[in-house]
Computed example of a mutant assay.
Amino acid sequence: MRLLIVCLGNICRSPVAEGVLRPRIGMSTLAGRVELDSAGTGDWHVGQPPDRRAIANAAEHGVDISGLRARQLGAQDYQRFDWLLCADRANLRDVRARMPAECHAQAALLLEWAGVEADGEVPDPYTGGPAQFEHVFHLLDRAADGVIARLRHEYPDRRR
């Protein structure tokens, strides 16, 4: 299973989601069976680390995202990944608008796919302050739990 978390610039929401989810996958029965990455629909921050406020907020929760670098969603991602999990409806519209006719990936809202909130969105904290980054972290923490639960249910470990 290959998951790509998508937001606008790949410096706030999607790297935090990747940072929260990656170790949980690694410590679960899903280790080695799930590939995870993040990307943005825009190209403004390509090659840059996550926003310093996102790094600081994640670090307060024991999550290190400082080594991640922003990248833009590319045509190859539609073939490489099974699911493109979007932070909000605008990202989902952009992802679907770029989707080639013959495409492997499916696209959905992250919070809805994870069973956290039907039609739920992760708000962009970029123009906000610490409270907005904290709110986003908690949403993504809940989403990570939901992703793990869904993947365990849909792709149970058959090794015994």
Rank of each mutant, 00 (worst) to 15 (best):
E102K: 14
G47N: 12
Y126H: 13
D77C: 02
G19Y: 08
A118L: 10
P123G: 11
P15W: 06
P156L: 08
N10W: 02
I25H: 07
G129E: 04
A107F: 00
Y155A: 13
L30G: 00
A97C: 07
E121M: 05
E154V: 02
A101W: 14
E134A: 12
L140T: 02
A70S: 14
E102C: 03
G129F: 02
G74I: 08
D37Y: 07
G67N: 05
L8W: 11
L109T: 14
V136Y: 03
R24C: 04
P15N: 13
G32S: 09
E112R: 10
H138P: 06
A39P: 11
G62I: 14
C103K: 02
L21V: 04
Q48E: 15
T29C: 10
P23L: 12
R69A: 10
E121K: 10
C86R: 06
C7V: 04
N10Y: 06
A75K: 13
A144V: 01
S28C: 14
L84G: 04
A70I: 02
I148N: 06
E60H: 07
P125H: 03
D94A: 11
S38Q: 07
I5M: 14
E35W: 07
A54Y: 03
H135M: 05
L111M: 11
A101N: 12
L92K: 04
D51Y: 07
T127M: 12
C12E: 03
S66R: 09
Y78E: 07
V147A: 01
N10I: 13
T127Y: 11
Q48F: 11
P156M: 08
I148K: 06
V63I: 15
A144P: 10
R158V: 14
P15M: 00
A144G: 03
V122Y: 08
A31E: 15
E60N: 02
G40H: 06
V63T: 05
S66G: 13
S14Q: 12
H138T: 05
Q79E: 14
Q72C: 06
D124G: 09
D88K: 06
R93V: 04
D157M: 12
H61S: 07
L84F: 01
L30C: 01
A75L: 15
D82Q: 14
A105I: 01
R98E: 01
V16T: 15
D141I: 11
R98Y: 00
V122R: 05
I25F: 09
M1N: 00
D141G: 13
C86G: 05
H61L: 06
R96D: 15
I55M: 08
G146Q: 14
L8R: 00
A56E: 10
P100E: 05
E121N: 11
C86D: 08
R160C: 05
P123C: 09
A107H: 05
A59I: 08
C103P: 01
H104S: 08
Y155C: 12
T29L: 13
D82F: 11
A75S: 15
V16K: 14
V95T: 01
G32H: 08
D141H: 12
A39Y: 13
D124A: 09
G120V: 03
G40K: 13
A90Q: 13
R96E: 15
R96F: 03
W113P: 01
R159Y: 10
R13C: 00
A105D: 08
I55S: 00
R80E: 09
L110V: 00
C103T: 10
N91G: 01
L139Y: 09
L139R: 15
R80H: 01
R71G: 09
S38F: 12
A56Q: 09
L4G: 04
V46M: 06
A17H: 04
V63E: 01
